[in-house]
């Protein structure tokens, strides 16, 4: 653990009101801290360091700004962090990193946003494409946008690893598995692993809209494939033709097909695939590859996130 992050490791994220269960919030927090620590702060970067960077996060998982705040502050860059009002507590926790200042304004408050961006040389915006585009359009400040992405995994037989990936952040993270792909997927083993993951990291709050969407998915799976469920989890096996990335809480979708079929089915979304676990066929230019069980903290080269070298982009002020 990096010394700069040690004060954060003593905090209990169960108090952050993340919507996750206390057990899951703690697992996500420790995973995110470990993931951030993997960054190489001495890596040479082209260009010149910005004096200050704003991180604007909306509707993301609560740890999303952590990695960037840590890396920037660790390189001596002043960080102004704006998180959504629902994430004030986790933002305040990230604000314990020396050099990070936390601020809040209401989403869409253009004057506050303009004032904040006037203080910085560049910004990282995490959120919906529309949010990123709107901020870019309103500001002359270079913006690095990290929009919505999703993860996919190849069925490897390690059901517990897949279930762990799906359990962290209750499956809502951009690195969570939206699909398990392959042949001869053992649904019994996956169901058992999902149940065990639920016991270890119980599912947190589910919105009414999410619950409604889960019922739709369950009906679709019952009609066209298989639906398995238990308290706090669901497992759908659907035809590959129905592949649709979903970030539903603690619901894992399995699509069976040969390599060519899988690659073709994922083709329309190939640039939105941010994390690939196992040997998923196809070319995903923005994805980090790892093994199942590692999707929330992929080891190896930490330079690229969603195919973007965020630090390099900030140093060169490329938008």
């Amino acid at each position: 653990m990096s010394p700069a992050l040690e004060p954060l490791a003593t905090l209990d994220p169960a108090a952050f009101d993340t919507g996750l269960s206390p057990e899951n919030a703690r697992a996500c927090w420790s995973t995110a801290l470990a993931c951030a620590s993997m960054a190489d702060l001495s890596r040479p970067l082209p260009g010149s360091p910005p004096g200050a960077v704003a991180i604007i996060a909306s509707a993301n998982v609560f740890t999303a700004p952590l990695e960037w705040a840590y890396q920037l502050a660790g390189r001596g860059v002043k960080v102004y962090l704006k998180a959504s009002s629902a994430q004030r507590a986790s933002a305040a926790a990230i604000g314990r990193i020396e050099g990070v200042e936390v601020g809040h304004w209401r989403g869409g408050d253009v004057a506050a946003e303009k004032a904040a961006l006037a203080r910085v040389d560049a910004a990282i915006v995490l959120g919906a494409e529309a949010t990123i585009d709107a901020i870019r359009a309103r500001s002359a400040t270079p913006v690095v946008g990290l929009g919505p992405m999703f993860g996919v995994a190849a069925w490897t037989g390690d059901a517990h690893a897949h279930a762990r990936d799906a359990a962290l952040y209750d499956g809502r993270g951009c690195m969570s598995p939206a699909a398990i792909l392959g042949r001869a997927v053992d649904l019994d083993a996956l169901a058992g692993a999902m149940a065990e993951a639920e016991r270890r990291w119980p599912r947190g709050r589910v919105s009414a809209e999410e619950a409604s969407e889960i019922r739709r998915l369950a009906s679709l799976a019952r009609a066209t494939g298989t639906w398995r469920e238990g308290p706090g989890w669901g497992l759908a096996r659907l035809p590959l033709s129905r592949l649709e990335p979903r970030g539903l809480p603690r619901v894992l979708c399995v699509y069976e097909g040969d390599d060519d079929e899988v690659a073709a089915a994922l083709g329309p979304w190939r640039t939105q695939v941010g994390t690939v676990a196992g040997p998923v066929p196809g070319n995903y230019p923005r994805a980090r590859r790892c093994n199942p069980g590692q999707m929330q903290a992929p080891p190896g080269d930490r330079r690229l996130h969603d195919g973007i070298d965020v630090m390099e982009a900030l140093w060169t002020r490329s938008s």
Partner: peptide, 21 residues
């Protein structure tokens, strides 16, 4: 309507992703 409720997290539903042709 239920539609006003916001899906949380940074992984969004397919219709909110820009599909690449």
């Amino acid at each position: 309507r239920l539609e006003g409720a916001e899906l949380r997290g940074c992984s969004l539903r397919a219709e909110r992703l820009r599909v690449q042709a």
